[in-house]
């Protein structure tokens, strides 16, 4: 038998399987954005949300009529060219009110969820990462909060603090904190045991570094999904609280309040409830679709197709 030539004698063989070609470096956020744009569904959802947000910010510019400008003779008009969404029982332009309601609904949504996200994620992160008594203490508190039915808890908070937009934000946030804490903790419990976390510890990384560089980014996907779901629910919750008279106070518009008010006329003038309802549905849907897309795009493994391999 002839011996296999020594490595030195091997002609440099091109290895087609080796993915060794250099790739131009691009900033990560630009790459992420590029991929998000390529995901048609998420991109569309993002675009629609962007439009809604722009409209909400510049509501005064877009609204053709003051939201509380009454026109009693022209009340309960069906959609027409001058009032594309019709008018309500006081003759107010529904389109203008939907536009102005956007800023209230989105403000409540973003701020309440943002608050819950920050507080809940921190709690879940510490509870999951440190375990033991930290976990026990933090999660028992969360359990207590979680034990109350969500609406009851919010109502109780609003009853104590009084109705109004900022109190609505706080109430909804308090309801969502334990949810974020639980989702984060569950995710962190899995990631904490990953070998790459141990590997990073083995080179002497501090807990802060482990948490911020490895644990949180890898635990993020379910949190992102939860955020998009919660945003949707927060808009609905604001609607429900306003419906009960605890959230946004009339005559200021919010989608939920309009829905509540329109409900009375549902048989005579469907457009009163329909358009704010649609605004809620579209916004909620877009949040969810964008959340899904974001979760995929933030995962480097999804960015390139997996290279083949038998395992």
């Amino acid at each position: 038998m002839t011996a296999v030539p020594t490595p030195g004698g091997i002609p440099a063989a091109p290895a087609p399987g080796e993915p060794m070609v250099a790739r131009p470096a691009r900033p990560r956020w630009r790459e992420t954005l590029g991929l998000l744009v390529r995901d048609r569904t998420a991109a569309t959802a993002g675009l629609v949300l962007l439009i809604i947000i722009v409209v909400a910010i510049f509501d005064e510019t877009f609204a053709s009529q003051g939201p509380n400008e009454q026109d009693i003779p022209g009340r309960l008009q069906p959609p027409s060219w001058s009032h594309p969404f019709g008018t309500d029982d006081l003759g107010r332009d529904i389109l203008s009110r939907v536009i102005l309601g956007a800023s209230v609904s989105l403000k409540v949504g973003f701020l309440s969820v943002g608050l819950a996200l920050v507080v809940g994620t921190l709690i879940g992160l510490f509870a999951g990462f440190y375990g033991r008594w930290v976990d026990d203490a933090l999660m028992r508190i969360m359990d207590v909060l979680f034990a109350f039915p969500a609406v009851l808890l919010a109502i109780a908070i609003l009853a104590i603090r009084g109705p109004g937009t900022s109190n609505t934000i706080i109430a909804i946030a308090v309801v969502y904190v334990p949810i974020f804490a639980r989702v984060t903790r569950a995710s962190v419990l899995g990631v904490r045991e990953e070998v790459y976390v141990r590997a990073s510890r083995s080179i002497g990384a501090s807990d802060f570094r482990l948490l911020t560089r490895h644990v949180l980014p890898n635990a993020a996907p379910p949190i992102i999904v939860q955020t998009s779901i919660s945003l949707a629910f927060a808009v609905l919750a604001e609607a429900a609280l306003s419906f009960l008279g605890l959230g946004t106070q009339p005559p200021n518009p919010s989608w939920g309040l309009m829905l509540a008010e329109g409900n009375e006329f549902i048989n005579r003038a469907w457009w009163l409830a329909f358009f704010p309802g649609m605004a809620i549905v579209v916004t909620v849907l877009c949040f969810n679709l964008l959340g899904d897309g974001l979760r995929d795009v933030l995962d480097p493994r999804q960015r390139t197709l997996m290279a083949g391999g038998g395992r």
């Binding site: 990953e194 790459y196 141990r198 590997a199 080179i203 002497g204 501090s206 890898n218 933030l298 480097p300």
Partner: peptide
């Protein structure tokens, strides 16, 4: 101890699990 870790390294069994997929 953390400073000491510079002087001792570890290579793990599963190269699929020991690298942070997001870095």
């Amino acid at each position: 101890m953390r400073e000491m870790r510079r002087r001792a390294g570890m290579v793990f069994q599963d190269p699929f699990a020991s690298l942070d997929p997001r870095r």
